[in-house]
Amino acid sequence: MDIALQDQGGAVVVAVSGEVDLSTSPKVRDTLLDCIARGSAVVVDLSGVAYIDSSGVASLVEAYQAAKSKGLGFCLAQVSETPMRVLKLARLDQVFIIHDTLDEAIAAVA
């Protein structure tokens, strides 16, 4: 699994790729919470995610709650088929704000 960070138009784009599972999700969680702690709006780019499990989803939920409580923007972007299926299974596709493109997402949270 890889994580790439990029400041873009007033938000941090966190691009996650590879497999997010029990062994890698803590890194996702820490990275996201770190960005929020620094006061950034966050766009999580899930286009490169090949697999995500409940622990990965939980990291996203936790980060979303942290952002909300600080009044920061938080959304998901370019969610590929596999993670989308997992979000749907968890009925979280209705909870997260999901955008099809990065530009839309950045514009929405910044």
């Binding site: 499990d53 409940s54 939980a58 990291s59 939920v61 709650q65 299974l89 968890a90 009925r91 909870v95």
Partner: peptide, 18 residues
């Protein structure tokens, strides 16, 4: 309960759903 949005506890739901 899926209406209660919080981290964790999703695993068993996934298993039963699938």
């Amino acid at each position: 309960d899926l209406d209660d949005v919080r981290p964790g506890g999703l695993g068993v739901h996934f298993i039963r759903e699938v």
